[in-house]
Design a protein around this nucleic acid. Structure first.
Lengths: 212, 212
DNA sequence: CGTACATTTGACATCCTTCAAAATGAGTGG
DNA sequence: CCACTCATTTTGAAGGATGTCAAATGTACG
């Protein structure tokens, strides 16, 4: 899934470790490194003046951070769990990219994947009810954790309810109520607070309004 | 604002004209051309299975369409007004880009600008009230129409209330009510249905929750 | 076992939507 | 130039979905 060219590159860099709920960089920090998540889960987010957080993306192993042509980060990044990351100096990336069009290609590919995700999120938040948003989110996690050919039926939730709410534009209470509702309607089971089993995927897809 | 390299390129192509409310391309169509809006206003949008429209961006003169590495469009495009566009075959773009890193650079720049806009929209829809969304939207138009150094105080609305609603995740009624509310609070004046005057920009900024 | 924190549930308020009707505005023919 | 018609916008009233506030339950960790 992740472009091999970039993986190769980033594996030449250093490995860094972070604990859960640490900040890797903040909005406005100068862009110095290209990162790749090796283990753990992170978020990219933006805060309003009043301190509200909008999570723009969840990042899982294989995802990149810092693929940008901006001088400063327009999003902040925090860990949700313990994480290990691969890090490459941006100047090195620049040098390599100047001589290797494949690197440009790969960077564009990653950027476009991110853009698609961003538009998907806009669509989800703009046009869907709370239950639909949660259902969509669970299907998204299912794909991310199992791959597109074999979506996972047993999902882990490395993020808390607050994080999910900050992603989908909902409050924790609403998130919780929607989980309960999906459980009651037989779409999912909740064996524990950080785990979801997809019981009836068709019904879940219908709830997410992605019927085809 | 628009990268000169791309403008030069696209000016070598053909000029096409469209009437108001025509479709330039639809979601899923093969990407064959790079377009640049010369005159008029357009939208990029996506439809849900139930036929609801989410507008992802408004396009004004100088904006590009079809800067993508995908084979097919992931968004559809429609005109709001009479438009003229400059069109360049994508194969030509590919050839030039292969030899000229400046073109890649410019394309990335445009992509990132679009991405920033997309995240701005996510933030607006996810975290703001109806009035805040409308206020933010008006400030956005003010910048687009006057430039960042001299935002316009007299704004034209080439889009209808439905379009604004489809952009901000609101109904036409709510959009209308918010306009009325902003008028009543002295932030704006509505000399006609497609025109807005910014009376009290500070108050509007406060309403938009972008105080700094 | 006990504390601290996250999640769930409940009751109520609020905002936005929905449905319906009135007002406004643009285009057309008399 | 004025009346007529159609589409769009505005306004009103009522309902519903989500947010807010508060309490209870559940879970992790010392």
């Amino acid at each position: 899934m992740a472009p091999p060219v970039l993986l190769d590159l980033v594996q030449q860099g250093e490995t860094i470790s972070l604990n859960a709920h640490e900040t890797l960089f903040s909005e406005g920090d100068p862009v110095q490194h290209l990162y790749c998540v090796a283990e753990g889960t992170m978020v990219l987010s933006r805060y309003s003046v009043s301190g509200e957080r909008q999570i723009m993306a969840f990042l899982f192993p294989g995802d990149f951070l810092g693929i940008t042509f901006e001088k400063t980060f327009i999003l902040g990044s925090e860990t949700l769990t313990k994480c290990t990351l691969l890090r490459l100096d941006h100047s090195v990336l620049g040098e390599v990219a100047a001589n290797d069009p494949d690197v440009w290609q790969a960077m564009s590919e990653v950027t476009w994947r991110f853009l698609r995700g961003s538009m998907e999120l806009t669509f989800t938040i703009g046009r869907k009810s709370a239950v639909s948003r949660i259902a969509s989110f669970l299907l998204y996690l299912s794909f991310r954790q199992g791959g597109f050919s074999s979506p996972a039926a047993d999902i882990s939730l490395p993020m808390g309810r607050q994080d999910i709410g900050d992603f989908l534009g909902l409050t924790i209470e609403t998130v919780s109520r929607c989980f309960t509702k999906l459980k009651e309607t037989g779409c999912i089971a909740l064996p524990s607070t950080d785990r979801v089993e997809l019981i009836n995927v068709d019904a879940l897809r219908a709830a997410a309004d992605v019927v085809d």
